[in-house]
Amino acid sequence: MLKDMTLGQYYPVDSMVHRLDPRTKLAGTLLYIISLFITNNVVGYAIAFLFLCLCIGLSHVPPKYILKGLKPVLVLMFISVFFNLFFIKGEPVLFSWKFITITQPGLRQAILMAVRLVFLISGSALMTYTTTPTALTDGMEKGLGFLKVFKVPVHEIAMMMSIALRFIPILAEEADKIQKAQMARGAVFDEGNLIQRAKALVPLLVPLFISAFRRATDLAMAMEARCYHGGDGRTKMHPLKYGRNDMLVYTAFLAYLALVFISRKISIGI
């Protein structure tokens, strides 16, 4: 069910990772993603894996929860594996039957790509699990604050994102209810060709959009009633300030990145 989706939802426990400045976590995630694209061998991936495990361990988010969050992206992973496995040519050929050939470079690439995707998603998920949407948007607002000079409405974008995150589970649950309400009237969502299926979505999407608009109007009014008038003159419950841990984490990330770089030079023949 949609409402069980864990990806992108805050996991409310207290940990050293939870308490980090969101800017640190944002930058860290970015560095981690970059590192995944630098690595090119098993040693690099092993380092990335250990580093991820360390972060997850420090975050007190159960590993199971993180694995559960991977479910929605399984399809993406299968597609990636499929293409790498069957379409990369090279030597030696491991398996060949009619038009299907699997080569060693293909297999290697498929596995590495899948691993890379799992790491990438787990890493970014860990950030969203340990950072409240508000903190996340605060971090982006402050971290990207320099864009204001170019007339980018940084505060507004940040606010929009945080509201979107808050309403995703609510709307997901609502979609579930609407689907059931229409099924009770004989609607079928998994029958027929693509066009018929797309058409079948109309009775689901119309009520969902109308509800979303209604919620948006209500929310805008409620925010106004609570004196919201944009970012000017606003104070923060969590003013962002780097602490000692943040510096430590930045150092750790740089060290990690250096290790990954060094690992490129190591070759153990796989």
């Binding site: 609502e174 209810k177 609407i178 059931k180 309400a181 229409q182 009770a184 009237r185 109309v202 009775p203 119309v206 009520p207 109308i210 509800s211 209604r214």
Partner: peptide, 12 residues
Amino acid sequence: GMVFQYPEHQLF
């Protein structure tokens, strides 16, 4: 037949 709590969930 089933009528859900909020008619807004079915009218389209």
